[in-house]
Amino acid sequence: MKTSKYSDSLIMSILKQAEAGTPIPNLCREHGMSSATFYKWKSKYGGMDLSMMTRLKELEAENARLKRMYADERLKSDILQDALLKKF
């Protein structure tokens, strides 16, 4: 997966600047990002502080890991069931 060139603290500072009244097009131009990226961050991280944002990212990573584990176990289960059905 592609990593972001924007750190969590930078994202939070950009959102704080927007809350302080800096125009969105100026922020986007200054930081080299699109307005769509800004509004995506605002919808995802708006109202959070840095610790909450870090926790959210940890939970998303754990959720992805658990989904992969479930898919692997489901695949193993399907293979075993197919082998048992063919044997009898």
Rank of each mutant, 00 (worst) to 15 (best):
R55G: 00
H31E: 06
Q81G: 15
L50F: 04
A71H: 07
S35A: 09
S4Q: 08
A71K: 08
K76A: 12
L56M: 09
E62M: 10
M12T: 01
S34T: 13
L15T: 03
S13V: 01
R68F: 00
K16T: 05
K44A: 03
K86D: 15
Y70E: 10
D78N: 14
M69H: 06
L59A: 06
T3F: 04
E73S: 08
S4R: 10
S34I: 10
A71F: 02
K57G: 00
K5Q: 11
M1E: 05
K16E: 10
M69S: 05
K67I: 09
S34G: 14
F38A: 11
S9E: 12
M33E: 11
F38D: 10
E62D: 12
D72T: 08
I14C: 06
E62N: 12
P25E: 13
I24V: 11
M69Y: 05
A83K: 15
M48N: 00
L56R: 05
R65I: 03
L56K: 04
E58L: 11
C28N: 02
E73F: 08
S7C: 04
L75V: 05
I14V: 11
L56C: 03
S4H: 07
R65K: 06
M52A: 06
A20I: 00
I24M: 01
L75H: 08
T54I: 03
M53Y: 01
D82N: 15
D72N: 06
G21I: 07
L66C: 07
S43F: 04
T37H: 06
L66I: 10
I24S: 01
K76G: 10
L84S: 13
G46W: 02
K76F: 10
M33H: 08
M1K: 11
K44Y: 07
M33G: 13
K87I: 14
K67R: 11
C28V: 03
K40Y: 03
A64Q: 09
C28F: 05
A20D: 01
I24W: 03
D78T: 13
L50G: 08
L80E: 15
L80K: 15
R74V: 12
S4F: 04
E62I: 09
R29N: 12
K87C: 12
K16G: 04
L84F: 14
L27Q: 02
S7R: 01
K42A: 02
L66W: 04
K40D: 04
G32F: 05
M53P: 05
L85T: 15
I24T: 04
P23F: 02
D82Q: 14
G47K: 02
A20N: 02
G32T: 13
S43R: 13
S77Q: 13
S77A: 14
D72M: 08
I24F: 02
K57A: 02
L15F: 00
S13E: 04
E58Q: 12
A61P: 00
L10K: 00
D72P: 00
A18F: 07
L10V: 08
N26S: 08
D8H: 10
M48F: 00
K40H: 07
Q17D: 12
K67G: 13
M33V: 14
Y70T: 07
L59Y: 02
L80P: 14
Y39E: 02
F38V: 10
L27H: 04
